[in-house]
């Protein structure tokens, strides 16, 4: 059962990352691309949390009444949780910047198509001249 929990978590990570990768690469709508990128990031974050999971473990905060050796053998590994917090903040920042850029470009071109927004315009500029 315990193994199943970790396995289920890992499968969910893989599922999230594959869906995210598909959306980020193959879907033309930039908002959907960003949602895909968020899926990839959350998949990786879930993977990191899964690494720190300890079956039947306790929260890694030592209290005065706890025996240190009991705590050492029963507490979950705290490092991944610390890392994932930072990772979530970074992910949120990059998503915010991408959405801000998309808003500016949507106002400029009136479309959310990645093909339209991100196409090479240097050739068009030459043709216009």
């Amino acid at each position: 059962m315990i193994m199943d929990l970790q396995l289920a978590s890992l499968l969910t990570c893989g599922f999230l990352m594959i869906i995210g990768m598909f959306a980020a690469i193959f879907i033309d709508n930039v908002i959907k691309k960003v949602i895909g990128i968020a899926f990839i990031e959350e998949g990786v974050n879930l993977f990191i949390v899964t690494i720190g999971y300890k079956a039947g473990g306790v929260v890694p905060i030592i209290l005065p009444e706890m025996d240190p050796s009991w705590f050492a053998s029963n507490a979950a590994y705290p490092l991944p949780f610390g890392l994932v917090l930072t990772s979530i903040v970074i992910g949120a920042s990059t998503l915010a910047i991408m959405l801000a850029l998309i808003m500016i470009l949507y106002k400029k071109y009136g479309t959310l198509s990645a093909k339209e927004l991100l196409k090479d315009r240097s050739k068009e500029a030459v043709a216009d001249e």
């Binding site: 690469i25 990839i40 990031e41 998949g43 850029l101 998309i102 990645a114 927004l117 991100l118």
Partner: peptide
Amino acid sequence: ALKYMIVGSIGSP
């Protein structure tokens, strides 16, 4: 900037 950001946001995770 957006193009680099999208590519980078796939590379970073």
